[in-house]
Amino acid sequence: MNFTTVLAILAAILVYGLICFYIGYNGWAWLRRFPRLAKFKYVYFALITFLSISMLAGRFIPIPLLNMIGGYWMVIIGYSLLLLPILNLIHFINKKRGLKWIGSGVLIFYVVIFTYGTFNAWNPVIRNYHVDINKQSESDHVKILMASDFHLGSIVGVNHLERFISISEKVKPDIIMIPGDLIDDYIEPFMEEDMGKSLKKLNAPLGVYAVLGNHDYYGGDKEEIVKEMEKAGIRVLEDEVLTVQNQLTIAGRKDPTDPTRASLTEFFGGTDLSLPVILMDHQPIALDEAEQAGIDLLLSGHTHRGQVAPAQFITDRIYENDYGFLKKGNLSSIVSSGFGTWGPPLRIGTRSEAVVIDVNFK
């Protein structure tokens, strides 16, 4: 690690520390207006210190509760940086009056968004899309059940996975497709909760297929993840193409995290395009490449649609299609906000979802 990198890390830690102090001090300015609470000054600042450390430590120490607390603190930081400067200005203009009411309002705000966000995270909805593909197949219609970004691990566990199983049993799809981020970095929680037992319940006449996402690589458990998915009856496609019962051609790409990811031309070139072609690519970054290759339907996830508002405005600027349906020439692109969550089990301005795609062949 060179000197510049060390300096950058130290600068980032310093900035983060100042942000945490700013938030903590604002909270104390409100609490000390209540004599009974003011006696717990050192307890309060010890709590702020713990919360500040938890966001960093939770990514490296395998303690689920610490990871969850760190995620909530991350959300508090984000909204505080939006709210507090405005409220500080209002307080100053108001000649430093009404701090009790301002602080109480902030507290109520967090209670409301945490309650609302928790509901959105654990109560998935079904989104429906209709796609027409101008090709012939042995069948004139196929129903796809698609869900991305499960992030199965210490936070998103068996209970939430079983919700998807229930949706699958209700929808009765012809094929199930999972475009990436099945695991949240490390496979140990998946194994400890025996989540593979639940995944085995997934079935569809044309099969269950998946690709890997960036978080499936981060923990260094990629090979074991593929092995466990295959044991559960899920075919993981890694820069592969296959034909399903002479009805569809499906393909799956490695995530850009993988340095061995091939171009579409390398593994897809020469594929018979007479059948409808569906591609899974975790990150929706290669729409032009997919269109030029003759892909009919591209399924992606990754963006979570920002997960916590107003981050959806950021993902909208980054990706040509960050959520929902986009038609690009003969290519139809569908991006899901995901079934699970990353970081805090919260969704604000988004919703955990499963996607049903009714595809008609003409």
Results as ranks from 00 to 15, higher is better:
P85R: 11
K172P: 12
I225F: 09
V208L: 03
K95P: 04
R305W: 07
F190M: 03
T265F: 08
P189T: 11
V171N: 03
M1Y: 09
N2S: 14
L242R: 14
T315F: 06
W342S: 14
I9A: 11
I76A: 04
E138R: 13
P189E: 09
I357C: 00
P284C: 05
A286N: 07
G213D: 13
G98P: 00
D288C: 03
I23Y: 00
D216R: 09
I144V: 14
V43A: 15
A121F: 11
V106R: 13
L65Y: 04
K135H: 11
G219E: 06
M229R: 06
L212H: 14
L182W: 00
G103W: 11
P310I: 03
P35Y: 00
G153F: 13
I175H: 00
V226D: 01
Y42I: 12
K100A: 02
I63P: 07
I19M: 09
N159M: 09
I77H: 06
L212C: 15
K231F: 04
E228V: 09
G17W: 12
L299V: 06
H160P: 06
G27C: 10
P173T: 13
K328L: 03
P284Y: 07
Y319Q: 15
G213W: 08
V359L: 14
L81K: 06
I77S: 05
Y72W: 13
Y44W: 13
F50L: 06
G343L: 09
Q247W: 00
T249N: 12
E192Y: 12
A8S: 08
G324T: 01
F268D: 02
G103S: 04
E266G: 09
P256T: 12
Y16I: 02
F3K: 14
V308Q: 05
L297A: 04
G340R: 01
I318K: 01
E223W: 07
P205N: 01
G343K: 02
G117S: 03
K201L: 08
A121R: 11
D258P: 10
Y116G: 02
S263G: 12
I76Y: 02
T4L: 07
Q247M: 14
L145R: 01
A46N: 10
R163W: 04
G105A: 02
N159C: 09
K327A: 03
A354V: 12
L326C: 04
G338A: 00
G269E: 05
G269P: 01
A147F: 13
A121Q: 12
F339L: 08
